[in-house]
Amino acid sequence: MERKEILVADKITKIYGIGTKNLFEALHEVSLTMYEGEFVCIMGPSGAGKSTFINNLSTIDIPTKGKVFINGTEVRVMSEGQIGKFRYENLGFIFQEFNLLDSLTIFENIAVPLTLANVNKEEITQRVHDVAKKLGVEQTLDKFPNECSGGQRQRVAICRALVTNPKIIIADEPTGNLDSKNSHEILSLFKELNEKEGVSILMVTHDAKIASYSTKLLYIKDGIIDCTIEREGLSQKEYFYKIVDINSSESQELFE
């Protein structure tokens, strides 16, 4: 059966500091094709362009050159009016810093995307409770973000990302502020969402253990994709060692 392309990046380049003396090319003609149901992880050393890449793929930032297609639609040609609806229907964002609104309760935070889409009150309540139950944060719905633990806040951020049933989850270092127990619980959830519900996931991490939950890994270095690994038939442990090899070969270069 032919796999459906969910995200295509065609030679995207990102240059910062245009119009100043400090021009910096963070990405150089990077291309990627991501298929529906894939769990793609992006790794690389600090400053390699991982977050820039994910931001430019997901409408958070605009590439200087190149095209990005999400679910067959070119992102750059969309009007401002279309892009909001497009984000609502296709994308769910999760960040290291959780990015919850401190002034809203957990319930209200999860409900924000549905509110904007004018979903009726009963449906909002139902969907928020359903997703909160699934992620195990139902008991925190009346609390404020600062009354919750880091793990709970990240689960809430995932609830907010999932409440609209998006096609792709975009996660930038989602475990960066979590301890190892919470990190692996979150990643097990990602894996379950990916395998059982077919949600496509694009995630940035610098942790090989976290990356080993993915099905495909892109290693970015100096603004280009240095290598790609597919998990295919490998066990998670074998896949993990392969990821570690790539990272350590990068470190080995220091001594050569």
Binding site: I60, E80, G81, I83, G84, K85, R87, Y88, E89, L91, F93, N99, L100, L101, V112, P113, L116, A117, R160, T164
Partner: peptide, 8 residues
């Protein structure tokens, strides 16, 4: 956050 959540 509101933009990411799908606001126009």
């Amino acid at each position: 956050i509101i933009l990411m959540s799908g606001a126009s």
